[in-house]
Design a protein around this nucleic acid. Structure first.
Lengths: 227, 227
DNA sequence: TTTTAAATAATAGCAATACTATCATATAAG
DNA sequence: CTTATATGATAGTATTGCTATTATTTAAAA
């Protein structure tokens, strides 16, 4: 038995919902693999179509361009992390424990079951780590934000900020801390792999235990509690 | 009287040192203005040459491509921030005061004098905020890191980590905190302007006092001292 | 001053990218 | 069975990211 996750994403991001057809699901599947392999700059719809055994024109019927596709992928990731956090905190009352689960979800966003068949969540996490910020670091950010393209990120951060306020209701920076935990998680996994002089973290074999420990430590200090 | 800053950057970044000729200095000057105006994706050497009244081929004699030019610009910025920190902390003994100056330098990296005539430091700061991470979020990061292209960033972070250790010699994450303060400064200035739901900061008229206050607060909590 | 070298400008061209358009064919729905 | 819809196949166009060639200006050396 498997439970299918229904991810709801802003309609403006795509031209046609890729979840609704085999070709669409293939676009998602292979774009994750290909971006992870060649990087976002070298990635394009021609290569993607080739990889999938389809055509460039067909891909363009789903997404305006590769930038929209990247927004789709990171939005899916944000939504999925939010989902993970929800199912793993559902029976927990202590907000400190909830934050620990949040940090674990940020760092090692993966789960065995349920999962979506055409999405390799670990690869998607890699893509988000390496390319995620490019989704909103563009000249079009205000326009796209106006269209709701970053709604999923904001929703995720709002939820985390709420839990931070449960721990410390007078804390002045719940949203900043929430987004910083997310960004810092990705940054330091990336630094550990590629620019190790920028962090104290050591990553071995895709195990991010040290990142998790660090984020727990930082959170506890900032919010004023013992781990 | 003005003191000229000599910025020393890795020779591999450029084909010919742009500091050494009027055309080279123009490339730096106009690339900052143009990237700030149109964004890094839309920026190219043809537009830059047009803007400067030069030619595409001439720009290519200084930099292999726009990516190298971006690395040059952010390296200049990193080096310049390090310089600012040094001159502003030279007579200060208390490492907590030094860290305060570091945070001020990260957030509002600007100074009236001395300055480099062909570089608008405020605009460069804007470029680093919006485009800086793209310098090292590429598939070529390991290769370029091997060539020393990110030496200036690592130098800056190493210096800051040293001061953090002066404050708290048993602190486990001096490099992580240092790089996080830098990245967080840029992130939250960007968020405040473009994705305000991701931060608690409000920015008014390019005054970043709130960001500064937040980073001082976070540092003090994490390192365990009163502001 | 003359000559020679170096830097820049002007122009052309080429392969790849980022699309758009058209038409044929397959599939599914009415 | 007919018609709408999705996909495939193919072509084409404007822009980008360069490289090459030659001419012209500027600076350095003789």
């Amino acid at each position: 038995m498997s439970v299918e996750i229904k991810i709801s994403l802003n309609e403006g991001i795509y031209l046609k919902d890729p979840q609704d057809s085999p070709l669409g699901r293939n676009i998602i599947k292979y774009s994750i693999l290909l971006i992870d392999e060649v990087g976002f700059e070298a990635f394009n719809f021609k290569k993607l179509a080739q990889e999938m055994g389809s055509t460039e024109a067909s891909v363009y019927r789903y997404f305006e361009n590769k930038h929209s596709l990247l927004i789709y992928l990171v939005s899916w990731y944000w939504e999925w992390v939010a989902y993970l956090i929800k199912i793993n905190t559902v029976n927990i009352d202590d907000p400190k424990k909830k934050l620990k689960i949040i940090i674990n979800s940020f760092v090692s966003a993966s789960v065995d079951n349920p999962t979506t068949e055409y999405i390799d969540e670990n690869k998607l996490h890699s893509v988000v780590i390496a390319e995620g910020t490019k989704a909103y670091r563009t000249k079009e950010v205000d326009e796209e934000n106006g269209k709701g393209f970053f709604k999923n990120y904001k929703k995720l951060i709002t939820m985390v900020a709420g839990i931070i306020l449960e721990i410390n209701p007078t804390f002045e920076y719940p949203y900043s801390l929430a987004s910083n935990l997310f960004e810092m998680s990705n940054d330091h996994i990336y630094f550990a792999k590629h620019l190790p002089k920028l962090t104290d973290i050591k990553v071995e074999e895709n195990k991010y235990a040290e990142v998790e420990k660090m984020l727990n430590y930082f959170s506890a200090k900032i919010l004023g509690y013992e781990i």
